[in-house]
Design a protein around this nucleic acid. Structure first.
Lengths: 253, 253
DNA sequence: GAGTGGTCTAGACCACTCG
DNA sequence: GAGTGGTCTAGACCACTCT
């Protein structure tokens, strides 16, 4: 007697904190508003800073918060719906397919990519780096692997790299009639280079979309695109901008 | 002089560790093999346990490792390709749509769901809980929201809940001709209930797939499915089981 | 009971942004 | 230079799984 247990099966502190903060975000904060700094928040809740950070990490993973070193923690806007559509328009190289071609190189791809393309492991393929921008912010970085056989008309003497080359490869790829595409989505973490382009730290969670393009029954190209998981909601079909999911709780049954 | 800097722009220890461990996993370990425990590993690399754990967390997020309390850390098998297909077969309630109907309840859904269904915020809808199993393991938990108007033929006097009720709702939903569906994928964290069904801890990363089913131009049902992000690769189209992505490094350009 | 991963603490220092 | 989030430490205890 004398002691009261709030939780007979106590949940971890950081999880409880996450819930409390989540509700506070809903009711007491506006999008873009700056939260108190971590040391103050930790003191206010009577926990160590590391524990508070665990809760903040959860909320950032869920797209509720945005943290920037040297600046502070702000309330994130709702995730952007990004179409990863499977229709005929918006093939790579179409006039506006939401991607900005960056650099291009001719290099041997990772072994797994070579296998999928059915090229030799040491055979160089055109590797186009592209960036996808939405609402003025970079949302995804892509590597598009195009075997030489998919772009037979590509001039051989051009500059072997650079943005002009990237556009040329896309143009030629577009000429060969692409028939079909298949995609897969999985969770990953941003490598150093992707992280830089996406304005995140290395290790930031990303949604990796791997897409295989087919032409004449064979794999004509392969794309590996990493989307910022904190800010993006990938839409298949034409989902519009309805906001459904808003946290981990599934408050039914 | 006298001191050597391995990194002129030093990367964080945990990130470097992640890379080292990742390579070790590729070359020196088999799937299912148990790693040394965290305290030993930390000592071996000369870092604090917390730092080592940060590296392990990354690798677990990437689906390379599997950690179980009281057991140990093992090398994870490649992610399972799970079809989130958009074809006509495999509508909810089809003979085999990979989902096992669980419970069913009639309850007011979260506000966001009610809005998407265009039902009143306090109007109860049929809420079916289902579990998706692949290779003998649970991979996803789903809540399927079905407004009464979508299942007009549903007997009113039946048991209002339970597995039998769930099957009845699905059967009636199947009768009304579904026309189209739209999906979105985003990162989330498992709530306590989902976590339990998926055999994970609360807060575990999940891929949340929100699907809207249309019939006669209106939203006939809405599904929120949470897939284990560590073990699943969601495939759209029919991607097969090719393994492409294998870590954050993008070793081209 | 022994051994594992999971949680939590109290502190330190670093890297970055901004006025 | 002040203030922020990011990294790291060395330790403690807890919850769980096996034998």
């Amino acid at each position: 007697m004398g002691t009261t247990q709030l939780e007979s099966v106590p949940e971890p502190k950081y999880w409880h904190l996450r819930t409390v903060l989540s509700e506070a975000l809903d009711s007491e904060f506006e999008v873009g508003e700056i939260l108190p700094n971590e040391r103050d928040l930790a003191a206010r809740f009577g926990v160590a800073r590391a524990t508070l950070r665990q809760a903040l990490e959860q909320l950032e993973l869920e797209g509720r918060l945005q943290r920037r070193r040297g600046v502070g923690t702000t309330v994130a806007p709702p995730r952007v719906g990004v179409a990863v559509d499977t229709r005929e328009h918006a093939w790579p190289g179409t006039a506006d397919d939401a991607w900005q071609p960056g650099d291009c190189a001719l290099a041997a791809p990772p072994a797994a990519v070579a296998d999928a393309l059915e090229t030799g492991r040491d055979e160089p393929v055109h590797t186009v780096r592209r960036l996808r921008v939405s609402h003025g912010r970079p949302v995804a970085a892509e590597l598009l692997y195009v075997p030489s056989s998919s772009v037979p008309g590509l001039p051989a003497i051009d500059a072997p790299s650079g943005a002009a080359r990237a556009r040329a490869v896309l143009r030629e790829l577009q000429r060969g009639a692409l028939e079909r595409r298949e995609s897969a989505v999985e969770l990953g973490s941003a490598g150093a280079d992707d992280a830089k382009e996406l304005d995140r730290l290395p290790g930031a969670p990303v949604l990796v979309v791997t897409t295989r393009y087919f032409a004449e029954g064979r794999t004509a190209a392969l794309s590996v695109a990493t989307y910022r998981a904190d800010t993006c909601r990938l839409t298949f079909g034409d989902f519009g901008d309805v906001e459904i999911h808003h946290g981990p709780q599934t408050q039914a049954s």
